[in-house]
Amino acid sequence: MIQVKKETLYAGMLKGLLTTFDLAKIIIPVSIVVTILGKSGALEFLADFAAPLMRVFGLSGKAALALFSGYFINLYAAIGVILTLSLTLKELMIIGVMLMLSHSLFMELAISKKAGCSLFYVLLVRLIPSLLVGILGGWLF
C-alpha cells in the first residue's frame, strides 16, 4: 500500500516551488533575450547564418536557438526558446527527440564523469545518436 504522509506532501510542494524558482531564473532571462532578438531582427540574422546547418535536420534556422540552448544550457532554456518562438510541429518533434538524447551537456557530462564514465565517451554516445536521430527525423517527417 502506498502511504501519503502530510510531511511528504509539504516537502514535495516546497521542492516543487524551489524547482519552479530555479526554472524561472533561467526561463525569464531566456524569454527576454529571445524576445529582444526577435524584435530587433537579430534573430533573422542568426537564423540565416545557422540555416545551412539546420537544413541537415529538416529544421529552419530559427530552431538553432532552441537546439543550442538545450545542448549547452538545459532543457528549461530550450523550452523557454520554443515557447517564445513559433515553430512548426515537425520542427518541435525533431528538436524534441534530439534534445531528449542530448542536453545540458556541460552539467550532465560532469555528473556522468563522477559516476565513472569518461567525458569523451559520454559525449560520443549522447551526441551521435542525437544528431543521427535529427537527420533521420528531417528525412522522415
Partner: peptide, 15 residues
C-alpha cells in the same frame, strides 16, 4: 516588458 511577460507565462505553463 513583453519579454518579461513571455517569460512569466512560460514559467507558469511549466510550473
Amino acid at each position: 516588458w513583453e519579454g518579461l511577460l513571455n517569460g512569466i507565462s512560460n514559467v507558469w505553463s511549466l510550473a
